[in-house]
Structures are given as C-alpha cells and as structure tokens.
Design a protein around this nucleic acid. Sequence first.
DNA 1: TAGCGCTCGGACAACGTTGTCACAATAGCG
DNA 2: CGCTATTGTGACAACGTTGTCCGAGCGCTA
Lengths: 325, 325
Amino acid sequence: MADVAARAGVSLKTVSRVVNNAPHVQPELVERVLAAVAELGFRRNPQASSLRSGQPSATIGLLIEEIANPFYATIAGVVAEIARQNDTMLIIASSEEDPDREQQLLREMCTRRVDGLLVVPAGDDHAFLRAEIELGTPMVFLDRPAGGLIADTVLLDNRGGARDGMRRLLEAGHRRIGILLDSLGVYTMRERLDGAQDALAPAGVPYDTRLVRDGIRGPSAAARVVSEMLDRPDAPTAFFSLNNRITLGVIEELHRRGSDAALLGFDDFDMAGLVPYPLTVIAYDTRELARAAAELLFRRIEGDRSWPRTVVLPTELVARGLAPR
Amino acid sequence: MADVAARAGVSLKTVSRVVNNAPHVQPELVERVLAAVAELGFRRNPQASSLRSGQPSATIGLLIEEIANPFYATIAGVVAEIARQNDTMLIIASSEEDPDREQQLLREMCTRRVDGLLVVPAGDDHAFLRAEIELGTPMVFLDRPAGGLIADTVLLDNRGGARDGMRRLLEAGHRRIGILLDSLGVYTMRERLDGAQDALAPAGVPYDTRLVRDGIRGPSAAARVVSEMLDRPDAPTAFFSLNNRITLGVIEELHRRGSDAALLGFDDFDMAGLVPYPLTVIAYDTRELARAAAELLFRRIEGDRSWPRTVVLPTELVARGLAPR
DNA sequence: TAGCGCTCGGACAACGTTGTCACAATAGCG
DNA sequence: CGCTATTGTGACAACGTTGTCCGAGCGCTA
C-alpha cells in the first residue's frame, strides 16, 4: 500500500480511503491511485484489514458427515448458494461420523473466526461449543439435534414420517414387516424406529424383535439380510428400510428373487422412479432443510438474538419405482 | 494474550512461546501459562499470527460447477479428505458454469490468500489468473483444461473413451447410431463427440449430422429426442449418450417402449447396475481424478517448482444394467 | 481583508501476534 | 575464581491495514 501511495504521489491513508470507497477524495486522486493499484497489482490484505477494523471474516463453516453422500452434497449446494448471496465464503469439512474429528474440525473453524457454523452433529455431546456460542458465534444444527446444548436446530419429522409409512403398510394388511436399519447410534435411525413402533401398537400388531435388524451398513449387507429373512418359515410380507442405501440392497434382492413383498423406504433418491421394483418412499425436501438452516444462520449473523428455535420439516409418502414388466 | 501474561505473571512473549510450543521455557512457567489460558478461554488469533509471521493460511480453494452434482460431490469429498490429511481447510464454491461468477469467486479466493487452488474451469479464458500464478499461488485444473494458460491439469481421456465405445457399437454391426449431447460449449462434450467421429471413419460409416443432437439439458429432453428419432423411418439401432443425465432419459424412453436398441453412455453412475435396461457405460475413476489433482496441488504447495504437467486418466468400458425380465 | 466553516489529506497509533535482539541467570571450564 | 557458553526471559518493533484526530487550504461572508 505504501508503494501504491508513493507511485500515486499521495499518502498511505488516501490509498486506504480509495481502496475502501470512502468519501472525501478528489476524483483525480482516486484515478491516480487506482492506476497505481492496477500497475503494481496491489490487493489489500483482508487479514490485516479485519485485524485492524474488527470486521467479521465473511466466512461460514459447514460440517457434515460425508461430502460425497448425495444428501449432504445437496445440503452443501444449497448452503453454498445462500452463502454466495450473502457475499460469504464457505468452508466445508467432513466428520465421517467421528465425534473426535467433529470436535477437532469445529474447533479449527472457530479458531479461524468463522461468522457462523452449520453443523450436522456426529457426536452426542456438544458442550464444548457452549463457550463459543457465548462468545457470540451463531450456530445452527441440522438434521440432528446437538447434545447437551440449547441451540437453533432444523430437523426432519423422522418419527412422524416413519409412523405414517408403517401405518400405510399396516392398512394394506401387512402384519409381518421386516425393519432394516443402520446403526442405532445415529439419532435419525432411532427416531425412525420409534416412529415405526408408534404405528404398531394402535394396529394391534406386537413389536417382534426378530423382524428388526440393525447394523446394516450398505446395500449388499441389506440384500443378505433380506435373503435370510425371506428364507425363514414366517417370512415378512413387507419390508421397511430406514435409509436409502439399505433400500437399494433390498430392491436388488427382491428383484432378483421375483418376490412380491411390499417395500417402504425412508429417504427418496435420484432415479427412484427408474428402479425395477415398486416401492413407496418417505420423501422430504432436503433443499428446504438446508435452506431453512442457512437462512436462520444468516439471520443470527445479522444480529437476531431471539431465543433458539427448533424447526421440524414434514415428510411425505410417495409411490416410486417401476412395476415389473 | 496480554491478559494471559498478566494472570500467569509472565511476559507477553513467554505466553507466545508457550502457545507455539517453542523451546526454552521452564516447565513450571508453561504450566502457569496453560492454566491462565484455560481460565481465560484464550485462543490465539490466526489472522494476526499469520500477518506477523507470514505463514501460509493453511487453506485451499476448490472451484467446481455444482456441488450437488454427484460427480463434483465425489471430487469435493476426496479433496476434503486430502486437505484434512494436510491439516488444511477447504473453501468450496460453485461457478454454475458461469465464467463471470467463476472469475469473481477465484479472485475472492486469491484475495483471501489461499495456499492453492483446484479449479474445474467454466470459462475459456483464464489469463486473469496468470498474475496470481506468478505471484506464487499454485493452481491445478481438473476435468477441463484452462484457457490461455500453461498450468497443471488433470483430465480424463474423453476422446479415447468415446472412440473405444463407438468402436464397440460399430463392431457389433450398428451403422445408425444416435448421438445425444449437452452443450457443445463444454469442453468434455466436444472431446467426446470428436472421439465418436474418430471411430466412424475407419469403420467406413459416414458422419450423419441428422443423427447428432446437441443442447439436451436433462433426462426428459433426452427422452423426447429418443422418441422422435425412433419414430423416423431410418431409426437408429443404437444410441450413444454423452453424459449420464442424458443416459437416464434414454433408458426411460427405451424401457417404456420395450425397444431393443443398444445403448452406450458416457459416465458411470450410482445404481447403474439396477436400471431396467442393458447398457454399456464408459466409466472412469472420479476419485482418482480428484486424488491426482489434489496430490499434485499439495506437492506444488510444498515447493515443487517443476514444469507444469498434464495428466490424462484412462476410461474403461463396463457392461451395466439389468436384462429385461 | 479578516474571520469563519468546510473539505480533504496526512501523521500516528492500534489491531494481536511473533521475530530479533539483548540481557540476566546459571552451568561449565581452566 | 573469573571467564565463556548456554539457557531462559523480556523489551521492542514490525506485519498491513484502518480509526482518530489535527491542521492546511479553500471559498464564503461581513
């Protein structure tokens, strides 16, 4: 900046004023300064600038489980767009469902003085963020609630959606429904399982633990479990898959066998209309989830200090897949 | 930091030493300082730190077209992981194929003094980055080459892959092959179309422009084009779709009609093994693409000043989809 | 023409940290 | 016991920028 000032024949402060579009500078000087800036390729250092002026960093952080997963990729896309609209840069990191890693990454983001955080929590204790919140960093949790912390949260109606879906299966006369899920350690899985149970009691169907299988990590594991269940004498007449990766495996196995079991899956997915098996999915608006969370965050950043709120977004039952030809 | 020093009864500099794990500090003092740090909730300001010490920002930027797109999401995931392994934060932004927006976002990243940039170019002139490169910011372009700039680049063998795929169709006896593509403004589309043409001449099949349709933006547009082509008297016996969104639409229409046209698609996709139509895809390793680019970038950041290199990754023909039941 | 207010430019300090250097205290040596 | 090394500590300036404040120069009025 001093070089620019020398070149333009003005004081350092005048250059600062020009660079910051401050008033009270002669048009002629402005021009000279801008010329010098262009010639010397000067660009102001935002670190020094915000150090002195105490301005925010115009950066937010987004912590998700896994970027490559379409659910999180969709969220990241929406957040990136809203961040751009707010002239804010976006730092993204993946916790890979590891609480230690989550904590480390969130700390790092806070250290970098992000203006706000959007977090899909991995661990179940986020007390370490309390100091940061009190220090004034806004934070919005999405898809799952934070542990041990009262904070803004945007969730899906996992429980209600699962209950509605199960009710549909029960109304169709199914009494033996296989329920397949990933880890019970994940909040959404617990909620969805609870929702399924909610529907059983009013229908007079007992909760049979032999029909519930957890720890299913991917499509092929799901296919194996389905195969095994169908081979039992009291095979299920319907399946409820609690996430879309499991749904894929179930479809694969049911299609392979030419089975006519009903299939209900939580999570919609791309190409769900093209899969070779009729299924009903519990769908929701992922983009709306991200939008609500990001908008809330920016309202907080702009100074909204009202009491933390929790938003729950609805789910919807949708018929998908192709009938067998 | 001054408060911490006062509380621990040491000088400010000693606190700095402790915070930076510098040697030559008495263990007892270290302890007192750390206690004061904990009590006051002190965290050093990396902006001021790097302002003074001139250290790099430990941040890289990734510019892609659209985060929600699985191709870019996969890239982002790999880059995020490699960044983490290098203790580096990752800023992600989407250009949405808009050259102006690309330029604006890249400038902003450079202003923030990122240590390096990974760019999927949207525009075709990146001369504005030359000053930045000469200033010492490493940059690696991926999936598409930069315009008007000699720089590190990691590409896929679009042309070779398309040629091999077409050759396969020609060997199977197809002579009328419908070619469907998105905009010719996109580098990869041009390369793939060139590759298709490369295969036609040696097989003695003329290039018939009536069989080539560009400007196809999504699955439903693709389905319409297929429908129209199949209704013509000299309907194609095979289709070559130049990206996976188009492939989806083609499948939909071919399946709907119960057609037996052969289908070749560029880009593999999730669930490609579950779609209700037999198809061959030109697949490649997206993760490897991202890995190669990110590794190269970090080698540059670590000081590798060798001549810019261009890496071209191979493609592979893979049979996918389910035969009709 | 003196006095007044208004505009604009520049000197200076400060943001929070660390590199440099100097000095004090201790240990090691002849 | 005095000398030099070595280690531990602190004063100071500097990184690049901007907020504060003062005063120079200007035009206007009485």
